[in-house]
Amino acid sequence: MIFKRHRRLRGSDALRDLVRETYLQTSDLIYPLFIKEDIEEKQEVTSMPGVYQFPLNLLLIEVEEIVNLGIKSVILFGIPKEKDEIGSQASDVQGIVQRAIRLIKEAYPQLLVIADTCLCEFTSHGHCGLLKSDQVDNDSSLARLAEVAVSQARAGADIIAPSNAMDGFVYVIRQALDEAGFQNIPIMSYAIKFASSFYGPFRDAGESAPAFGNRKTYQMDPANRLEALREARSDEEEGADFLMVKPALAFLDIIRDLRGQTQLPIVAYNVSGEYAMIKAASQQGWIDEKSVVLETLLGIKRAGADLIITYFAKDLVRYLKEEE
């Protein structure tokens, strides 16, 4: 028997490019933006170097850079000045997210604006739904979340992205959008959202840490694979147009399994903790940031993701331009 010479296909840059199976493209990327009321200057998130909370008056400067880089999609997270038990500002016509959507769409109508639909950044208790006693009540939360989604659509959001992890949220939001005349607004469901320790830096950026307890009664146990696939199947049946897996790196197997189950576009969220670890190691000189970012995002894409939400989006575009 003659052994196989696999190295024949690795002999030069041109040859490696010829047989490359997986590619990263600018159009794969969705860039998260944090908009905060009651600040006048952008504020760097301590646990996420290079990520900022923006005031409305400086938002378009950041968006202009994003557009000029060729990034076609952003997802918005808002931090209101005032919070209450039901997250009133999340659905207010003058809420921070609604104002940001209108501002962006007026200046850059071609940019795809995705609205994260949740209550955790807007509630005084920091949970993703309404409380009954000290528990998050699923069904009353659904009606409230539907109000938020419709408000975001009215403001001009191109895609509604519910991240609240309530049972039935896709069905209720789809029904509410249709009844309000937004039949053509897609839903990007956070279909598989694990109760992950990788979210810590995001809670700094979004100022959304729960005031008590945790989110394990509504976000998924990281140990469960089959449950994840059941969750995704339910959301697809209820009318989701995209299915998301969050986080990405510790759950590449879930992305791969989901790719075999659905024909819908799959979105992977390369979350804050994943970003922060690479940044921290890079700042210590322990890794080469560019190489690790490229390898990380390629791995997510290779696992089966069509789109990636990542805080590295701007960096990645610059890396890709360097390699052209």
Rank of each mutant, 00 (worst) to 15 (best):
G273Y: 11
S73M: 06
I278W: 01
G200K: 14
Y275E: 06
G299M: 11
V150W: 04
K314L: 04
P210Y: 13
H6L: 12
G285K: 07
L243C: 04
Y218G: 09
I86G: 07
A303P: 11
N224Q: 15
P201M: 03
H125K: 04
T26G: 11
I71Q: 00
N138K: 02
F77N: 10
T26C: 06
G70R: 11
L294P: 02
Y171S: 14
K83L: 08
L76D: 02
F122K: 09
D306E: 07
K246A: 10
L76V: 04
T310P: 03
S189T: 07
A14Q: 12
T22A: 08
R215S: 12
E295H: 12
A268C: 09
Y52P: 01
D139V: 10
V150F: 10
Y31T: 13
Y23I: 05
D167T: 03
V271H: 04
R230M: 05
I104D: 02
E65T: 13
I96K: 09
T46H: 13
Y31E: 08
Q263L: 10
A143M: 02
E207W: 05
S88T: 15
D139T: 13
V97K: 05
V170A: 07
Y269N: 05
E64D: 12
A281V: 05
C118P: 00
G206A: 15
R318Y: 03
R7Q: 11
S163C: 13
Q98A: 14
P162F: 03
T262C: 10
Y199N: 08
I173F: 02
E44R: 01
Q263S: 15
L243K: 05
G95D: 04
L307F: 15
L130Q: 06
V63Y: 02
V19N: 11
H6V: 09
S272K: 12
A115H: 05
V317E: 04
A211L: 15
V292A: 13
F202N: 00
L307A: 01
Y269D: 01
F198V: 08
I266Y: 10
V113Q: 05
G239L: 07
N68C: 05
R302W: 12
L243Y: 08
F3M: 09
R10I: 07
L60M: 00
E179T: 06
Y190K: 04
Q25D: 12
G11F: 10
G285Y: 05
P49T: 03
A195W: 02
N57I: 01
L294D: 01
I254K: 00
A161G: 08
F3K: 11
S141H: 08
C118N: 01
I101H: 05
V148R: 01
D288S: 12
D92C: 00
D137L: 10
I309H: 00
D204I: 03
E40W: 11
Q284P: 01
I35C: 00
M188A: 04
R203T: 12
A268H: 03
R7L: 11
A209K: 14
Q284D: 07
D204L: 06
L131T: 06
P55E: 11
F34N: 07
D158P: 06
I160L: 08
D253K: 10
S163L: 06
K4C: 07
I2H: 07
I79G: 11
V317R: 06
L249F: 02
V170W: 09
K301W: 08
V67G: 07
A14W: 03
R318G: 03
A165F: 08
F242G: 01
E82L: 15
